[in-house]
């Protein structure tokens, strides 16, 4: 059984249709990359899977159960967790509280406060500080840690390298094997095509709300990808 399977997914913002008949599947244990230019619809896809956009058609199955009509808070309880674009830490909560609130669903599993601090040791000493003191990369670590606290089956990561220096991005991507090792599948949304292909098993390319290319990441050539990415 597939972990996630979206079929015929169309999403609307009022009269504007942002996604057209999308079909995306994630196998258990897989890391899937979703690439595409600005405005392609990547964030819209992740948000609609996570239940934040209600206006949609088609089916979304998670672990075999239809979740398309569920609100975000119920989907979160099933173990599908979104790291939102722009990190969106809670500014009025301390760093540690940001992590703790990730465990609100009470889902049991490998991840807890201690394990997240092991994964991102730089955060361990800073739990009592407020998020605004952190650099972009550190905020991203907290955002990922907050999502891990929910012990997700599927982690959706929206542009985690946005605005970060390459060395910092490398550091964050280094945490992925540890996350996968605990059985969590990942969808990464990335603007940088090469990095996405290197980090994933399977790649989907979105262009103007449609899937223009998909395939096993190691089978896709850079030409194919850039063609699908820019639509040229």
């Amino acid at each position: 059984m597939k972990l996630l399977e979206a079929r015929g997914l169309s999403v609307f913002y009022g009269d504007l249709q942002a996604l057209f008949d999308i079909a995306v599947a994630v196998e258990p244990g897989q890391t899937v990359a979703l690439i595409g230019a600005n405005g392609a619809g990547k964030t819209t896809f992740l948000k609609s899977i996570a239940g934040l956009i209600a206006s949609k058609r088609g089916s979304i199955a998670f672990e075999g159960a239809e979740i398309g009509a569920l609100p975000a808070e119920q989907i979160a309880r099933l173990g599908l967790t979104l790291v939102p674009e722009g990190r969106l830490l809670f500014q009025n909560l301390t760093i540690e509280e940001n992590l703790l609130i990730g465990a609100y669903t009470g889902r049991k599993g490998y991840w807890n406060l201690g394990r997240v601090y092991e994964l991102f040791p730089a955060m361990a000493a800073r739990g009592r500080e407020m998020p605004f003191v952190l650099s972009g990369g550190e905020q991203q670590m907290v955002a990922i840690g907050r999502a891990l606290m929910a012990n997700p089956r599927l982690l959706l990561a929206d542009e985690i390298s946005q605005g970060l220096a390459p060395v910092v991005v490398d550091q964050i991507y280094k945490s992925f094997p540890a996350i996968r090792a605990e059985g969590t599948s990942i969808i990464i949304v990335e603007q940088e095509v090469r990095r996405a292909a290197a980090a994933s098993d399977y790649t989907y390319c979105l262009l103007k709300g449609r899937v223009t290319l998909e395939g096993r990441s190691k089978d896709l050539s850079f030409d194919q990808l850039s063609h699908a990415y820019f639509g040229a």
């Binding site: 996570a50 609100p71 979160a76 967790t81 809670f90 669903t105 929910a150």
Partner: peptide, 9 residues
């Protein structure tokens, strides 16, 4: 919205 992502209603 982010609170909802944490499972908060």
């Amino acid at each position: 919205d982010v609170a909802r992502l944490m499972g908060i209603k």
